[in-house]
Amino acid sequence: MDLTEFDRLFDKKNYKRHPWEISRKKVLFKLLSASEIKFPIKRIVDIGGGDAYIINEIFKHKLADEYFTIDTAYSPEIIAQLKVNYGENSIHYVQNLTDYFNTFPTKENVLFLCMDVLEHLENEDEILQHLTRKNNYFLFAVPAFQTVFSQHDLLLGHYRRYNLKQLEKLLTKNQFQISDKGYYFSSLLLVRWIESIFNKNKKASIDNWTGTTFKSKLLVVILQLDFAFTRVIQKFGIKIYGLSCYCICKK
């Protein structure tokens, strides 16, 4: 999760969700629909769930029988506010992976989502060492390319950015079997590169989007076209870099 996500929990009425978040959600659904995973699956667990936007969107689409979101920031006060914001439903809010595995064991297949989380950890093993059980599925996504690391990353609490080879190496070292991989949001990579040079003190984040509704919808459309184009090109073996990279895996 990004540290700024919790700034908006208590101001839902006036909050505008960033088009990047909406677009990332759409990318997630497209990646899952194209994967080998059969839905509905028994359980989906969103690691680093932040303000629980993703898991609540997944809940609406009925992709699983059980839903969990895990974040170290989930205090009783935060959980209570999340339930106010999204309504009472069957989503479980858990503070850490140890509590999750101890309290909610299962032998059924589980899909773990770990999107934009590993970069927040000084050592990725804090999460990866827990994900050892066989016959589970995993989707990892991280921000790409250390060359565009900037004040924006520091604002969000990032230790690093990755390229796809680095992400693959990290996952294969931990016995994950990668079935799909790639980059997305290619159009944003150039924008971020320019910002990293000329706008080193950027304060904008996903929690303070002030764009109009029209601008938000336009950016979402552009990013979805960007993703669709990248997927088509990749099918022909042509690699196009993007601001984020992902791996879908199994153990």
Rank of each mutant, 00 (worst) to 15 (best):
L82G: 09
L82E: 11
K83S: 14
V84I: 15
V84L: 14
N85T: 12
Y86S: 08
Y86M: 11
Y86I: 10
G87F: 11
G87P: 12
G87W: 10
E88Y: 13
N89G: 08
S90L: 11
I91S: 04
I91Y: 06
I91Q: 01
H92A: 08
Y93G: 07
N96W: 06
N96E: 05
N96A: 05
T98P: 02
D99F: 03
D99Y: 02
Y100M: 05
Y100L: 07
Y100V: 01
F101W: 00
F101L: 03
F101V: 00
N102Q: 05
N102H: 03
N102K: 03
N102E: 11
N102V: 04
T103V: 02
T103D: 04
F104A: 04
P105G: 02
P105F: 01
P105H: 01
P105T: 02
T106N: 00
K107R: 06
E108G: 01
N109S: 13
L113M: 01
C114D: 00
C114M: 01
M115E: 02
D116K: 03
V117E: 01
E119M: 07
H120E: 01
H120G: 00
E122P: 05
E122T: 11
E122N: 13
E122H: 11
N123Q: 10
N123H: 11
E124F: 06
E124H: 07
E124S: 12
D125N: 10
I127V: 15
I127D: 01
L128R: 05
H130W: 13
H130T: 09
L131M: 15
T132L: 09
T132N: 09
K134S: 14
N135A: 11
N135R: 09
Y137E: 08
F138T: 09
F138G: 08
F140K: 05
A141S: 13
A141M: 14
A141D: 08
V142H: 02
V142M: 08
V142D: 06
P143W: 10
Q146L: 15
Q146G: 10
T147F: 15
T147W: 15
V148L: 10
V148W: 13
V148F: 13
F149D: 00
F149K: 04
Q151A: 09
Q151T: 10
H152T: 10
H152Q: 12
D153I: 12
D153G: 06
L154D: 09
L154I: 14
L154T: 13
L155A: 10
L155R: 09
G157Q: 08
G157K: 07
